[in-house]
């Protein structure tokens, strides 16, 4: 799948202040992502860049030692959230996706600018229903201020279905 258009940026930084992981994280080179890390991915709001974002989600979950189903679920949930947002994004705007890697939990916040002619995000779709099933918690943020966001949590152990 080709990746085109203006390139996105991936930035990673330590969480502020006392969010440092109390347990022994990082028991070897390249093993487990330190809990308390924040990873932010910004791309143009284009469906062609979603594969990149979901790959980041999948990689973070694997490094945070999520079980394989939970990794799969997070990848799909992030894909779904991003696809939903790209649909309503203003032309030429960007998609901002933040991953907050905690102990046994990843919090994701994705957001786009909708411009003036805001198309409302409907939660009456198959996609939204799937998103609710995949994520442990999901919330739509539409406050009419020209941006729409989706916030979701995924725990490291997938709930048995």
């Amino acid at each position: 799948m080709g990746i085109e258009g203006p390139s996105g940026s991936v930035t990673k930084g330590r969480r502020r202040v006392s969010e440092v992981d109390p347990v022994g994280a990082g028991d070897g080179p390249g093993t487990v992502e330190t809990p308390g890390s924040v990873v932010e991915v910004r791309t143009s709001a284009s469906a062609s860049l979603i594969p990149t974002i979901r790959a980041v989600a999948s990689d973070l979950a694997a490094r945070a030692d999520f079980d394989l189903d939970a990794i799969s679920d997070l990848r799909m949930a992030v894909d779904e959230a991003c696809a939903t947002l790209v649909d309503v994004a203003a032309p030429g705007s960007s998609l901002r996706c933040t991953f907050d890697v905690r102990e046994e939990l990843i919090r994701v916040h994705a957001e786009v600018d909708t411009g003036d002619a805001a198309t409302p995000v409907s939660t009456d779709t198959f996609g939204w229903r799937v998103l609710q099933t995949l994520a442990d918690e999901v919330e739509l943020e539409a406050n009419g201020s020209g941006t729409v966001g989706i916030r979701l949590h995924k725990r490291a152990d997938a709930a048995p279905r």
Partner: peptide, 28 residues
């Protein structure tokens, strides 16, 4: 009775987690 975690796979195989992560990526 559930999907394993990378660390559990590593323990089972007796290899570092990093190698499991690499292997999972290759499978993808």
């Amino acid at each position: 009775g559930r999907a394993p975690r990378p660390s559990e796979i590593a323990e089972q195989l007796g290899v570092p987690v990093a190698e499991v992560l690499e292997g999972l990526e290759a499978s993808e």
